[in-house]
Simulated scan of single mutants.
Amino acid sequence: MRFIQRLPKPEILERKEDSWRERFVNSDNPRPSNKQYAHQQIRDTLNTMSFHKCFYCERKLKDIPQEVDHFIEVAEIRDLAFDWDNLYLSCDNCNNKIENLRIPVTQALDPCRDTDEIIQEHISFEDEIIRTKNGSQLGLRTIQKFKLNSDQLDKVRLTQIKYFEQLLSKILIAMHQEDRGIHEHEKEALLSFKNPDRPFSLMFKVMLDKYSNLLAS
């Protein structure tokens, strides 16, 4: 999870939000229309905000199911069904949180509210395994609510770590064979793994902190 800066409200919501909300609130439908709150304009803007990643786990959403999620569930506050600030982008793993409705969003981290610094006070990683930091209950509830510790995510994160380790090994071998320090372009290649547009960038930020001596040379 990383902090996400919300972009201006999509034009379709500027035009339709009030009428969509009124129609839904006054209906007996338990859920709003997915064709409305997940309209392509809305989906495109959310993708741009998150660099095409899940707001919660940072998994890249290319070629996998992506869902527009209500951060505060419609069952709790129907008036927020089309509220721009309540629409997030999620993978199917993180959005399948029915069993965790007992954890309110007020007791979990919010990627559109909490800064990177706040998030990192509560969540960390040991290799591909997500952990709470300093026993944080806020971190624990966030992991539980969005299933950030699922086997599925562990496997995907591990695959990304292997890409990183392959690059790191190649650089270390070249440094040894050429009897030299690390080149600037090699540093940049390693550091790029923690850029916000990369998958699981928080995990790699934690990993790269372990190589501070190498990257500072």
Rank of each mutant, 00 (worst) to 15 (best):
residue 5 Q to T: 11
residue 11 E to F: 06
residue 15 R to Y: 05
residue 18 D to G: 05
residue 19 S to T: 11
residue 20 W to A: 01
residue 20 W to N: 03
residue 20 W to E: 01
residue 21 R to D: 00
residue 22 E to A: 11
residue 22 E to S: 13
residue 22 E to H: 13
residue 25 V to P: 01
residue 25 V to Y: 07
residue 29 N to T: 02
residue 30 P to Y: 09
residue 30 P to G: 04
residue 31 R to Y: 11
residue 34 N to K: 12
residue 42 I to R: 05
residue 42 I to P: 00
residue 47 N to I: 06
residue 48 T to G: 03
residue 48 T to S: 10
residue 49 M to E: 15
residue 50 S to Y: 07
residue 53 K to P: 04
residue 57 C to F: 01
residue 60 K to M: 10
residue 60 K to G: 09
residue 60 K to H: 15
residue 64 I to C: 05
residue 67 E to C: 07
residue 70 H to Q: 09
residue 71 F to M: 03
residue 72 I to A: 04
residue 72 I to Q: 13
residue 73 E to Y: 07
residue 75 A to D: 10
residue 75 A to F: 09
residue 77 I to N: 13
residue 80 L to S: 02
residue 82 F to T: 00
residue 85 D to Q: 10
residue 85 D to C: 06
residue 87 L to A: 04
residue 87 L to T: 04
residue 94 C to Q: 09
residue 95 N to W: 05
residue 96 N to K: 11
residue 98 I to T: 13
residue 104 P to T: 09
residue 104 P to Q: 08
residue 110 D to M: 04
residue 111 P to M: 00
residue 112 C to Q: 12
residue 113 R to K: 14
residue 115 T to R: 09
residue 117 E to I: 13
residue 117 E to P: 01
residue 119 I to F: 05
residue 121 E to S: 12
residue 122 H to D: 03
residue 123 I to F: 06
residue 124 S to P: 00
residue 126 E to I: 11
residue 127 D to R: 15
residue 129 I to Y: 11
residue 131 R to F: 10
residue 135 G to Q: 07
residue 138 L to C: 06
residue 138 L to K: 14
residue 139 G to L: 03
residue 140 L to Q: 11
residue 145 K to G: 05
residue 148 L to Q: 02
residue 149 N to L: 03
residue 151 D to W: 02
residue 152 Q to W: 09
residue 154 D to E: 09
residue 154 D to A: 10
residue 156 V to S: 02
residue 156 V to K: 08
residue 158 L to Q: 10
residue 159 T to A: 11
residue 161 I to V: 11
residue 161 I to L: 15
residue 161 I to H: 04
residue 170 K to I: 03
residue 171 I to M: 06
residue 171 I to G: 02
residue 173 I to Q: 08
residue 178 E to Q: 14
residue 178 E to F: 08
residue 180 R to V: 09
residue 181 G to I: 08
residue 181 G to M: 03
residue 183 H to R: 15
residue 183 H to E: 14
residue 185 H to F: 13
residue 185 H to S: 11
residue 191 L to E: 10
residue 191 L to C: 08
residue 191 L to G: 00
residue 192 S to H: 14
residue 195 N to H: 15
residue 202 L to R: 04
residue 202 L to S: 05
residue 204 F to V: 08
residue 206 V to I: 14
residue 206 V to D: 07
residue 207 M to Y: 10
residue 209 D to T: 11
residue 210 K to R: 11
residue 211 Y to P: 01
residue 215 L to F: 06
residue 216 A to W: 05
